[in-house]
Design a protein around this nucleic acid. Structure first.
Lengths: 159, 159
DNA sequence: GTGTTTAATAAGAAATATTCCTATTAACGA
DNA sequence: TCGTTAATAGGAATATTTCTTATTAAACAC
């Protein structure tokens, strides 16, 4: 049986050492893109990341941003999130955490506290071999939207 | 404090009654698109849904597929998933469940069993008002890929 | 049933988002 | 410092999603 705890921390990642360790070339682009995400608190889109890094590195191309984001995601340093309003958003996963997304305004909030266990994968035992990450995504209404907008969303606990 | 159980079932949805109840017109397109997803076990893309329904309804347009999927998602009947290999995938959420996604081949498996509770939202109490859904997404390697490919993914439990 | 109202659709254009192609650059090991 | 080659820039190509507008068909009143 595969059973995964939610809380798995990892932090203080030095991108230079990390890339080197993985046998990847330590390019300015990779380091800067990693930093841009690690230092952001805003779950930026690829476009936002591009604009942010390009200020320091005018030759940067969009292709490099996407390629690097894919690399970082594969390494487990970054997570791609589906945003209710189209387009992908990216978030540093140097520290394991989860997300709350407001269905009204689209704001994404980090949720570091975690308790309990992941869904048991017993029913998938013969089909699943290794767990890489467990991510909980909670959707609902943030306080602001709950009070200001007349929403019509079915909520948990209601019929 | 907001605390949400994972397991919240809902099933046997009659799309006609459901749309009517919500004050939405019961169009052939809506009913057929809903059925296509509800009967699929394959987490189809918008394109796949389009092709499937168009066999029965040749005049269907892609725009209607996207529009209807957005409506169904808003009603909580359908969930949009980010697929590792670009593009969105859709899944019927008539019965609450979770997902395992293989990072190698991209296969998505349903995971109905669930235990534990969602991450505590205590830290977000003042920012979050209402929970609409709790979804757990587990990533890793399916048995097939774990045994056949030489993967280089950091896995949970390893350093 | 018939007519009226208007939400929903089809069609294709437009806007976005993402990936691909190729020549060039620069990281790294010798 | 030099050679090798992974990685990048630039732009084209593709894919995905949304928008615009005329048309259609649900829903409802009669």
């Amino acid at each position: 049986m595969i059973r995964s705890q939610f809380l798995v921390e990892r932090q203080d990642i030095d991108p230079v050492a990390f890339f080197r360790e993985k046998g990847l070339r330590v390019t300015h682009q990779r380091v800067e893109i990693f930093r841009e995400i690690a230092e952001s608190r805003e779950h930026p889109s690829a476009e936002t990341i591009f604009e942010g890094v390009r200020r320091r590195m005018p030759s940067l191309s969009m292709d490099t941003v996407y390629r690097t984001l894919a690399t970082l995601e594969e390494l487990g340093l970054v997570m791609r999130l589906t945003h209710p309003r189209g387009g992908a958003r990216y978030d540093s996963m140097a520290i394991t955490h989860h997300h709350f997304i407001c269905l009204e305004c689209g704001e994404i909030m980090d949720c570091f506290a975690a308790s309990g266990e992941a869904p048991l994968l017993e029913e998938l035992t013969d089909r699943v071999s290794a767990v890489r990450s467990v991510h909980v995504e909670i959707r609902g209404l943030c306080s602001h939207c709950h009070h200001t907008s007349n929403h019509n969303l079915p909520l948990m606990g209601e019929s």
